[in-house]
């Protein structure tokens, strides 16, 4: 397979850290499923292209990737299937792109979710990140567009942020390849359980909702003791999400989250 990228920092790096093998769309067999989530316009597709060697073009305007794109790559002897979710600002509305993203995170049960965040407007990106942390445990944050952030005079303490969020945070610039190697190392560490994430779960104790939540969470936890995200499920029920309600009714919401080596994705 020919290497499609222009020469840059990430290509052919030190073998000690493993080799990135771009697999394009050939992902017939994989060891881990990785979801790529993030706000629109954060360079999510650039990262996707860099990892898989595919060339999905998306321009500099919001909401371009609407279909779910899939590709694959190999790293450190394992094969990863990468699912590029539509760029969204949130996970809570009924819009088609948010529904696709939310349902994949909830029911597709990826082994890992990489949140691509724009380092130049972190606040807005944390809004989505906090919601993703409500849904799923295994998350790595790719703090993308670091080159832009530097040009804007923005300094980010990634270590502190990692501590606050309880997940690995990797500064990178997908466009030039800066930090992509470090990202792969962290991704591997999380899927192989060498790094354990302790996701920061924001307490959703909004006035008038807390009591209802408490009742529902208690019931949910009683019926599904394994449920890792009871609060979020309770919230979705209160928001009238019928897809979640159906999974609660038929009991399938309670399956454990990890299912490595089980290629049972729709």
């Amino acid at each position: 397979m020919s290497d499609a990228c222009p020469p840059s920092a990430c290509d052919g790096c030190r073998a000690a850290r493993g080799e990135l093998e771009r697999l394009g769309i050939s992902v017939a067999r994989w060891d881990y499923v990785v979801a790529l989530a993030g706000n629109p316009n954060t360079g999510k597709s650039t990262l996707f292209n860099r990892l898989t060697g595919l060339r999905q073009h998306t321009g500099n305007w919001p909401g371009k990737t609407i279909a779910r794109a899939e590709g694959g790559f190999g790293y450190g002897g394992s094969r990863y299937k990468l699912v590029d979710l539509p760029g969204t600002y949130s996970l809570r509305s009924a819009s088609p792109d948010e529904t696709v993203a939310r349902e994949f995170l909830l029911f597709g049960r990826p082994d890992l979710t990489v949140v691509v965040a724009d380092a130049t407007s972190l606040e807005r990106n944390l809004n989505l990140t906090l919601q993703i942390l409500q849904v799923t445990d295994r998350v790595v944050m790719a703090l993308n567009l670091m080159d832009e952030a530097r040009a804007h005079g923005i300094l980010i303490d990634a270590r502190r942020m990692a501590g606050d969020l309880g997940i690995p945070v990797v500064p990178c610039a997908a466009r030039s390849g800066e930090g992509v190697e470090d990202l792969l190392v962290e991704m591997e560490a999380v899927v192989t359980n060498r790094t354990t994430t302790r996701p920061y779960r924001l307490k959703l104790d909004v006035p008038g909702v807390a009591a209802a939540m408490e009742q529902l969470v208690a019931k949910l936890e009683k019926r599904f003791p394994q449920l890792p995200n009871a609060e979020w499920i309770a919230l979705r029920l209160l928001e009238g999400d019928r897809a979640v309600a159906a999974k609660v009714a038929d009991g399938s919401i309670g399956f454990s989250q990890t299912n490595s080596l089980a290629p049972n994705l729709a």
Partner: peptide
């Protein structure tokens, strides 16, 4: 509706 959630999400 969607306009409300969009504006909220935009900050």
């Amino acid at each position: 509706g969607s306009e409300r959630s969009r504006l909220l999400d935009l900050g």
